[in-house]
Computed example of a mutant assay.
Amino acid sequence: MNVEHEDVEVNGVRLHIAHRGSGPLVLLLHGFPEGWYSWRHQFDALAAAGYRVVAPDQRGYGRSDRPEEVSSYTLPHLVGDVVALIAALGEESAVVVGHDWGAPVAWATALMRPDLVRGVVGLSVPPAPPAMMPPPSVTRQIYGEGYYQVYFQERGRADAEMAADPARFLRRILVGASGDAPFADGPRVWMIPEGTTAVDGLPEPESLPAWLTEEDVRVFAREHALHGEHAYTGPLDWYRNIEANQGLMSPFRGRTIDVPGLYAVGTMDLVLAMRGVAELRAALTSIVPDLRGDITLQGCGHWTQQERPAEVNAALLDFLAGLDRAPAPRTGHGARPQEA
């Protein structure tokens, strides 16, 4: 992987970016608990096809700044970073690709600033406008206090548990939420049992799957450890704004995402076990009218572009190449024209 690194100032925040290639801009937005390195398998393929590929550490992560206030991590702030980054890179538009938390940011950027987004891709998390995910006041009633997003609301608790040994946490979550998890009875919602921690509740893997190496774990851990004991405070503050996002995004209620879109998810992705996701997926074409594909990756877990880089790269390149083509005809609501 041959990438360059630099820092860019956006909205008073210094963002670290990894980049390669030249041509139309493709922004790759990582999720929790990752960073630019989660796109390590995409740089070469996209750059070789003639694209300028840029993957930032989003605010709070890795080599980027970590604003102190919890309120600095709202969805409008995160979208604002994408908008400012496009301008700082000297571009007028971009294709925005997001995974996990990066997917809501990508979908919301396309919703709020369609003038800047040529196309949008969401991996794992489908679009749920306007705030993109249900708030803790709702999920607490559905799942209880052990639901990970609810557990994360107390500032300092999960932060300290994860930061105590980043490599241990990362090894457990990356394997535990993958298609190679110890259980094989289907995807499960991430729950933290009472009396355990966000780390201890995840099983220690006996070995790493073929798609993940010890060096990968070390790179992630080293990048995260740059913020010391607050390695996960910024990333977890994203979750602590889910409730606030409901009001902040309310002006966009009823809006559709009107740029070409693509969605991909693995059959073992924990997101599919969440209540309401099946209904969201069935309604994708009413949310994203110009949906160019809804891809299912058999046996793939949550870490879509890391577990299945060849399939994801092929889907991205096909989507990118087709952005100037007319939308494909649809045969019905929620149609899934592309399966992998």
Rank of each mutant, 00 (worst) to 15 (best):
R255C: 03
P209V: 02
S93N: 13
W303P: 13
E204G: 03
Q149L: 13
E204R: 09
V199Y: 11
N313L: 10
P166I: 05
D290Q: 13
A314L: 07
A163D: 05
P114M: 09
A47V: 10
V54H: 03
E243F: 04
L25C: 04
Y143G: 10
A49Y: 04
A103N: 12
G332W: 00
L27D: 12
T109M: 10
M133Y: 13
A282T: 08
T233S: 09
G62W: 00
V79Y: 06
L212T: 01
P193C: 04
A167Y: 05
G201C: 15
A110D: 10
A231W: 04
G276T: 12
E214G: 07
E215Q: 12
A47K: 08
E68R: 14
G234M: 10
G261P: 12
R275K: 14
A88N: 10
P205N: 11
A328I: 00
S71E: 15
V26K: 03
V312S: 08
G186M: 06
L270G: 03
M162N: 09
R172C: 07
L111E: 14
Y143P: 04
P203W: 12
Y239F: 15
Y143R: 05
G261W: 06
G156T: 12
Q246M: 03
V70T: 15
P327Y: 10
I86A: 04
P130Q: 04
A326T: 15
A49N: 02
D180S: 15
I257M: 06
N2E: 14
M133C: 01
E339M: 01
E204P: 07
N313E: 12
Q246T: 15
D294F: 01
A94S: 14
H99G: 14
G122R: 06
A18I: 08
A198D: 02
L236N: 11
P166L: 06
V121C: 11
L111R: 09
R325L: 10
Q246E: 14
G266S: 07
W238F: 12
D200V: 00
V70N: 13
S93C: 06
P24A: 10
N11R: 15
P33C: 03
R222F: 00
R113E: 13
D200H: 06
Y61P: 03
T331R: 13
A55H: 11
A84V: 09
P33R: 03
P56N: 07
P203L: 04
L46Q: 13
E243N: 05
G12F: 11
R308V: 11
R188L: 10
W238R: 02
G301Y: 02
L89F: 06
A47L: 11
G201D: 03
A225W: 01
A314F: 07
Q42C: 09
D165Q: 04
A310R: 13
A88K: 15
L236R: 02
V271T: 14
A221C: 01
R292Y: 07
Y239E: 06
R281M: 11
D57L: 05
T74V: 08
G21H: 11
M274S: 07
E229I: 01
P104L: 12
L27F: 10
A221Q: 04
H224R: 12
A48Q: 10
T331K: 02
G35D: 09
A163Q: 03
R140F: 02
R325N: 14
E145C: 00
G122L: 01
N245D: 15
R188C: 01
F183I: 05
M274V: 13
G247P: 01
D44L: 00
S93K: 12
V271Y: 01
D294C: 09
R59K: 08
D185Q: 05
A88G: 08
L85Y: 07
E243S: 11
G299Q: 09
